[in-house]
Design a binder for these strands. Sequence first.
DNA 1: GCCAACGTTGGC
DNA 2: GCCAACGTTGGC
Length: 155
Amino acid sequence: MHYWLMKSEPGDYSVDDLESDGVTHWDGVRNYQARNLMRDEMHVGDHVLFYHSNAKPPSVVGIAEVAREAYPDHTQFDPKDPHFDPKSDPDEPRWIMVDIRFVEKLPRPVGLPELKTYPELSGMVLLNRPRLSVQPVTEAEFEFIVARASDPAPE
DNA sequence: GCCAACGTTGGC
DNA sequence: GCCAACGTTGGC
């Protein structure tokens, strides 16, 4: 069992969108490191923290789970799609995606400024490695954040 | 809207 | 294979 954090801009695709869709394919990842993590490490049933980037404040807002393991991301072959990749060979697709299933919204969003205040999270990839849209979290980090979401919001 | 971090591209 | 130019992410 692995744990993950996946970023999405809420204007693009929010946790509410995921809730109404139930399951969605996580297309558009065009970063090799993120791709390799999804392709090699992500398994059905893995738990995912759903994170709103470019929000005020950026926040962990929900929980999802991996519903399907890596398969080709069809948007790479669509010239009209913003994620079109003319160099990707259909016989050997360069980019893959996974399916994510909605589990729950957190009782309250846990914002980035708050996350930074917890020594327990000082090693989080989120706080140390900018610009990685799919990233691993430890089980302890996952459980800690979910527990904080049941606490009252700090001042 | 700005810009720092950093990944990718392509000329050489 | 180096590295400058360029593009993107994402916090602020």
